[in-house]
Design a protein around this nucleic acid. Sequence first.
DNA 1: CGAATATCAGTGACACTGAAATTA
DNA 2: CTAATTTCAGTGGCACTGATATTC
Lengths: 151, 151
Amino acid sequence: MTTDDSNAPDGSAAELAELFFRLSKRIRHRSAEHLAPLGLTPAQARALRVLHHEKPMRIVALAGRLDIVPRSATTVVDALEQAGLVTRETDPADRRSVLVSLSAAGRERMRGLHASRRRAAEDAFGSLPESDRAALARILHALHGAINDPK
Amino acid sequence: MTTDDSNAPDGSAAELAELFFRLSKRIRHRSAEHLAPLGLTPAQARALRVLHHEKPMRIVALAGRLDIVPRSATTVVDALEQAGLVTRETDPADRRSVLVSLSAAGRERMRGLHASRRRAAEDAFGSLPESDRAALARILHALHGAINDPK
DNA sequence: CGAATATCAGTGACACTGAAATTA
DNA sequence: CTAATTTCAGTGGCACTGATATTC
């Protein structure tokens, strides 16, 4: 009884979780498709975007912005560096640190990336009326604030 | 933390995509944590849930419900079978097909799973007022309908 | 010395494609 | 023979932990 995860839009937490999961999967998939022509994976694209409006930053900082552990950020940067989109330099002020910045090619790639991102986002959310988008943004913000990693 | 001032809640599609991504990641992570004590991964738990209220079903059907390709469903079922939670039988009516059903242990496991799922969902969405949950459910439904896989 | 930074090595979880076996 | 069903083999993308070198 009351196992209503069939399909009733009742607003139960469990139903929301399921919807959320499915939707995010679709969106991720779409995003990957949009990015493939640019030779970027979603994670790489996100890193590139962060680096685009931050100035040269350390791996730890980048990891923080991406919400991943530093070790994982290293791998992302490896790929971007190999693709020639970012450069690594040792921080002269602290030789433990590495400063990552966009290369010229990286900045160039950002152009296509911006367009692609916009298209992908419109693809996903463009069908929503303005009011719903605002409501969704507000609610997602609230949720994001509510879910704190107790880490 | 990281209350990024650079991202005003403007309801732009790109911002929504970003919010959505971050949130879904958090939720997935939480979900995995909740499931770990049960010895299940999120994908396995979802499959188990589908099998719980469908009757014995073929791999293709299960894959359809999980929104994955049949080959991937096989792997999930492999794990569940190895854990003794589901059983495979050849469909007597069509020997190409395999009928997957919950074992007794699988049904037993569903008890803990239900509780866990509820806790996880409440953990994620419980903070939302009723009206927001309803609005969110409605909007997510709309989005889900709008995003058609051109498969 | 203890703490921070980045990296190396290995692993887990997820889902994909392409190819093969079996049966309809 | 064609089509459907499942499975095998391999791969990609993502992020994790634990251990190590370097530097502060």
